[in-house]
């Protein structure tokens, strides 16, 4: 049983993100309303952002800002004492781009609602087939 506990404590973060990602994926493929699809897309993006950030953690490491860090006076800067900055950088830009894509998605939804007066996917498809 101790093995199982070790596995669970080491991988629990990934499982939480997978659950979150599946919630988003389910909303994207199964829901009929376009706004719900967009919300699902955002949940999926959040899961991926959390996944990347959790990759960057290290045991007993501090934030990747060098000044005023622990032990700087006595030791040289060692990579093992600082969290991995690379996932943070990638996700920092990804968050802002997620907001930008959300804006474009909402703009497209507004245009669709103007044209078809509904946001349900099947009703829009039915109207498209009539034309």
């Amino acid at each position: 049983m101790p093995d199982l506990v070790v596995i669970i404590t080491a991988k629990l973060n990934y499982w939480v993100y997978i659950v979150l990602m599946m919630v988003g994926l389910y909303a994207m493929i199964a829901k009929n309303n376009l706004v719900k699809k967009v919300v699902g897309m955002n949940i999926l993006q959040t899961a991926i952002i959390l996944f990347f950030i959790s990759i960057g953690t290290k045991h007993n490491a501090t934030i990747p800002i060098i000044q005023h860090a622990h032990g700087l006076e006595t030791h040289a800067v060692q990579a093992v004492n600082y969290a991995n900055p690379l996932p943070h950088v990638l996700m920092l830009t990804a968050i802002v781009v997620a907001v930008a894509t959300l804006g474009v998605a909402l703009a497209l939804i507004i245009r669709l609602h103007r044209q078809y007066h509904t946001l349900e996917e099947d009703e829009i498809l039915a109207q498209l087939e009539e034309d």
Binding site: T9, S54, K58, H59, I66, L86, P87
Partner: peptide
């Protein structure tokens, strides 16, 4: 098969990121 939580030797933390930190 993924690296464990907080593992300092995970692939993401071994190649280019130590150079950035140091």
């Amino acid at each position: 098969d993924f690296p464990d939580w907080g593992d300092p030797g995970s692939p993401a933390s071994t190649h280019v990121s130590p150079y950035y930190i140091e």
